[in-house]
Amino acid sequence: MGSGNYGGLFGNAGSNVLGSVVSSAMGGGIGGTVLSSIIQGMGSNVLNGQIGSQLSPTDQNFRLQQLGGAVHSGTVKQAQQWTNPQTGNTIALNPVGQQTLHSTTQQTCQNLQETVTQPNGQNITENRLACLNAQTGKWNLVH
């Protein structure tokens, strides 16, 4: 799984895939409404990136739920790893460097590196940025 290029699927129908993922997230886990909001906020950046364009819908669903959970719980400052039991793909999210102050928004931000390792050993890596919303005290995945 994940060896095909799904860029066209997510590029042209990203909102349909995102809607499916959000509906799935509402069914359980962290707290449907909160997780749904987090996933919607980060969905297009995550779905259309280098990693997102190469994953199957099954892995996208799993990935968005895991990233949403990390953002919701505030654990973006800690290295984390998840393996999708349906496909064997492993997702790792690692902080890179120290937290910084975003020059435009004045938010505390953390650079992250997301890596997906497929069962065949192929890695796909993408850089992300999470920023702390001072009003809500929650992290947002902004890129």
Score class of each variant (00 low, 15 high):
residue 59 D to V: 03
residue 60 Q to I: 05
residue 60 Q to N: 04
residue 61 N to A: 10
residue 62 F to V: 01
residue 65 Q to K: 13
residue 65 Q to G: 01
residue 67 L to V: 12
residue 68 G to I: 03
residue 69 G to P: 00
residue 70 A to T: 02
residue 71 V to Q: 07
residue 74 G to S: 10
residue 75 T to K: 09
residue 77 K to D: 12
residue 79 A to Y: 05
residue 80 Q to A: 12
residue 81 Q to Y: 03
residue 81 Q to F: 03
residue 82 W to G: 03
residue 83 T to H: 06
residue 84 N to L: 12
residue 84 N to P: 00
residue 84 N to C: 09
residue 84 N to Y: 14
residue 85 P to G: 14
residue 86 Q to D: 15
residue 87 T to Y: 05
residue 87 T to R: 08
residue 88 G to E: 15
residue 89 N to F: 03
residue 89 N to D: 14
residue 90 T to E: 06
residue 94 N to G: 00
residue 95 P to E: 15
residue 96 V to K: 02
residue 97 G to V: 13
residue 98 Q to T: 14
residue 98 Q to A: 15
residue 100 T to N: 11
residue 101 L to N: 13
residue 104 T to I: 09
residue 104 T to V: 13
residue 107 Q to N: 10
residue 107 Q to W: 08
residue 108 T to Y: 06
residue 109 C to I: 08
residue 109 C to N: 08
residue 112 L to M: 05
residue 115 T to F: 02
residue 117 T to Q: 08
residue 117 T to I: 01
residue 119 P to G: 08
residue 120 N to K: 04
residue 121 G to R: 15
residue 122 Q to Y: 08
residue 122 Q to R: 06
residue 124 I to S: 03
residue 124 I to Y: 11
residue 125 T to D: 11
residue 126 E to W: 13
residue 128 R to T: 00
residue 130 A to M: 04
residue 130 A to V: 02
residue 132 L to E: 11
residue 132 L to S: 04
residue 133 N to D: 15
residue 135 Q to Y: 06
residue 136 T to I: 04
residue 137 G to L: 07
